[in-house]
Write a protein that binds this DNA or RNA. Structure first.
Lengths: 341, 341
DNA sequence: CTGAAAGCGCTTACAG
DNA sequence: CTGAAAGCGCTTACAG
């Protein structure tokens, strides 16, 4: 069972070429155009002919060649979703939501990742663009100009970001942040920090500004502490600086960072939440796993995926079917925030 | 900032049709065939002509249409990776590994998921097959016959499964299981259980049989306890039955199940690992998050992704470049296994 | 070194 | 209701 192979695989030469509409035409004695019609516009042919053609198609195991169809029509029937890192748990529910809509519409959704590289993202987007009907950019690392340029060639939407002139779907950070701050305030926290994310991240800016405004409104002090990378390692590295800031609670740019911070605290004997309360963003897979379980501000990821796809389809088909839903964040109160009263 | 849209998006009508080789031909005064050569077979044209053509291509923002190219050549330059659930952390490193190889080869890797549905998996595989050069099935839910059938139309490989006549890449569960069992034995465990996964999972069968053989060899008693679903919920649900089995340690089908079990134990005041030791499989993201951190048997996921892609490329190009590496699992000793001596 | 021509598998006006 | 023809954007023998 350590063998990677059982019998010899099919020899390349052995593969039979797939059936085409010409094969079906020959088998049924009609013209290729008629076959095309029978398969694509049911009801436009004589009942019997259509039946005969469909049967022959089944018989021959006919499968339409989407690329051949795309050439004359310009429609590929596939959509692409581009993420920076397909293994980032933050994207999960966005992907699920998008997937659901695409499947319901009979469209193929294809994923690609840019591995956090703007160059690779641009290259991938450009290459994909010629073979799909539309692009869905989640957390793009491109510049506004690059995105606008891409959107001038084919329908495109972005999530988690606002680009002038481009359709976007972004969560509203205010309800979640507001609720979290209320909780901290009620629990007697007065000095808080924001362990920030990458400068290039649009969401990072929004989170920080919202946090800042709302904290000040509530009479709390707030300070921004930069983190090196938006990962668990980045969070762990920042612990000493967070501790040195003399705050009772810290918001982390995302759950990955918060989780790293939490683990470093545990490893170094810092009591969370008694000594330091921690709040993350996103509610990724695993946020509820540690002890204490991480309190976090959740974005409506799945709804974002669905809304994004809907709006992309609107851009493609022109049919304006529904209004953009509001996408409020929500505070999830778990165990990493302490009552100091 | 709760607005989903800033300015009006590009109107569909406003999009300029992409440049073709005909446009370049017209701009440079050569024939389309020459343009094609200039762009694809560098060095086959007069230096100056080639330069001129390349410049014009850049100028016009020319991007080759992969579907148009695929028609005459039969090569699309893209490969598809199909998983049952793209948000399952188990696939992460497989995906990363595959991605790395594809990118290095200048190929586009595209992902699709079957949402755990065999019907959807088959439909997706068939549809994708006509637009890619090869298919990589990770943890397929199809029957052997269906997979063999698919592999007769285009190059295809499977991971985490053995299908007669189909190239496969599977981890060797023995080193990891053997090491884990040695550890348990050394720690004084004599009665163990296996909380099993889906019957349809090939890996589940392999894990159980290996566990069984090796446990018996070591004089340990072992019992199989079925779990309802291979998820955290499934693991949580099984806790009472595991407890009732009167064992000191349990192996779970995968980390998701193990994590569910661990959490249920914590919630119900069962002391892990003192009262019950738990070992998972896979070492997914988050396995090290809980207290106690989960001990688990790790598959060389990334290597599997890489090896799989390599073998797929071999099937496609016929070039036999390297031998199948052995893919041993490894036991990761964390905190969920207790010393009972 | 370069061009004209045929062909890849489909669709869709245009006729009949 | 159905067929012949042209065309989608490329590639590649085949000539020259």
């Amino acid at each position: 069972m350590s063998e990677s192979e059982a019998l010899a695989p099919v020899r390349p030469g052995a593969r039979k070429p797939p059936a085409t509409i010409y094969d079906i035409a020959r088998a049924t004695g009609v013209s290729p155009s008629t076959v095309s019609r029978a398969l694509n516009k049911p009801g436009r042919l004589k009942e019997a002919t259509e039946r005969r053609i469909r049967d022959a198609a089944d018989q021959l195991g006919y499968r339409i060649n989407p690329m051949a169809r795309a050439l004359p029509t310009g429609k590929t029937g596939t959509l692409a979703l581009l993420v920076s890192d397909i293994t980032n748990p933050v994207y999960f529910d966005v992907v699920r939501g998008a997937e659901r809509i695409a499947t319901a519409r009979g469209l193929t959704l294809v994923f690609a990742e840019s591995q956090e590289s703007p160059e690779l993202e641009l290259a991938t987007a450009q290459r994909l663009q010629t073979s799909v009907d539309g692009l869905f950019l989640v957390a793009s690392r491109l510049t506004d100009d690059q995105i606008v340029e891409l959107s001038s060639v084919k329908p495109l939407i972005v999530a988690n970001r606002l680009v002038p002139g481009v359709t976007a779907v972004v969560p509203d950070p205010r309800p979640g942040i507001s609720a979290a701050l209320d909780r901290l305030h009620e629990f007697g926290h007065h000095r808080i920090a924001y362990l920030s994310g990458p400068d290039a991240s649009w969401m990072n800016g929004v989170r920080w500004r919202t946090l800042f405004t709302y904290a000040v409104e509530r009479g709390m002090s707030i300070v921004e502490i930069p983190s090196t990378t938006p990962t668990r390692e980045g969070g762990a590295e920042a612990l000493q600086r967070v501790l040195a800031a003399d705050v009772s609670a810290v918001f982390a740019y995302n759950d990955l960072v918060a989780l790293g911070l939490l683990r470093a605290a545990r490893d170094q004997g810092v009591d969370v939440p008694r000594q330091l309360s921690i709040v993350g963003f996103d509610d990724i897979f695993g946020a509820d796993l540690p002890t204490p379980a991480l309190s976090t501000i959740k974005s409506p990821l799945r709804e974002m995926g669905e809304a994004g796809m809907h709006r992309l389809l609107v851009e493609i088909d022109g049919i304006d079917e529904e209004h953009a839903p509001s996408l409020p964040t929500r505070y999830i109160d778990r165990e990493s925030v302490a009552d100091r009263r």
